[in-house]
Amino acid sequence: MNRESLRILLPVVSLAVLLGAVFYLQPRAMSYFGLNLLFNLAIPVALATVAQMMVIMVNDIDLSIGTFVSFCACVTATFVNETPLLGYSILAVSIVAYAALGALIHYRNLPAIVVTLGMSFVWGGLAVLILPSPGGASPQWLQSLMSVKPPLLPVAIIAPVVIGFLTHILIMRSSFGVLLRGVGGNDRTVSRAGWSVLKLKASAYGLAGLFGVLSGMALIGLTTSADANIALRYTLLSVAGVILGGGEFTGGRISPIGAVIGALTLTLAASFLSFLRLSPDWQIGSQGAILILVLAVRLVFSRKEQVA
């Protein structure tokens, strides 16, 4: 078993254990509709987590992804719905803005944590400007796409699998992906080999922007209306999801499939409590506890690896 598949093993096992526990407590969840309900809201979380992963891949961290997804959700529920051309242009421009930020961060050698922090005010402000009070509506096609009922497996299962698979191909199997991860591993080497780190970093941020946009759109397809604070939690959830999925903060060591599984695990952790008939007060706490638990188990594994 190579290192890459070893990295993915723990997230898979933790999701399986959690899912097993849910099925044990509530066998009726083991159905088409049960699964759809369990994982429905995981789709936007998974997309946001992949966005975060793109930034963590190049050794940065994005503290603005939650407000950015909220902003995209607001744009989707208003402009994209009413004047599609304008709406899509705004979303496209915001992806370019994300790429430009990546370039700026590299060019001026800025701390990403502070720049994205500042940007979180900007996206938040724009979201409030667009939608001062909750409202808007989902574009029809988006709503029907998110509520489509394919045979055999619900969208809530198919979508994360597709997201994980596609990003895996892009990041782990393409030469472009190798370069992107190389920036996280050792940007000087990449630059000496004749590649423009500036362009690569801009691409990584651009990809983050793209997945942020997708996350906002998916969220609106599910909720059918927006508000300016709709996805604030995603900032922390996405960081947690990436780490839970076997990613690390440095060295470009990330796993797209792991990140998607991490997002599913965190979403499931929240609903797990209701099956235990525990008070929803502990919903956030349980996500924290599961994160700690998985990291503790990972420590045990990595110690064993060192011994062997």
């Binding site: 800025l110 005010f121 900007v122 996206w123 400007l129």
Partner: peptide, 28 residues
């Protein structure tokens, strides 16, 4: 100014300040 513009300007000012304050080549 409304809450939205206020937030936006606050964020932009933070980003601009940081961009001006740091020099290329400084260690992060």
């Amino acid at each position: 100014l409304g809450a939205g513009v206020r937030l936006m300007l606050t964020g932009l000012i933070i980003v601009v300040l940081v961009a001006l304050a740091s020099k290329p080549g400084d260690l992060r």
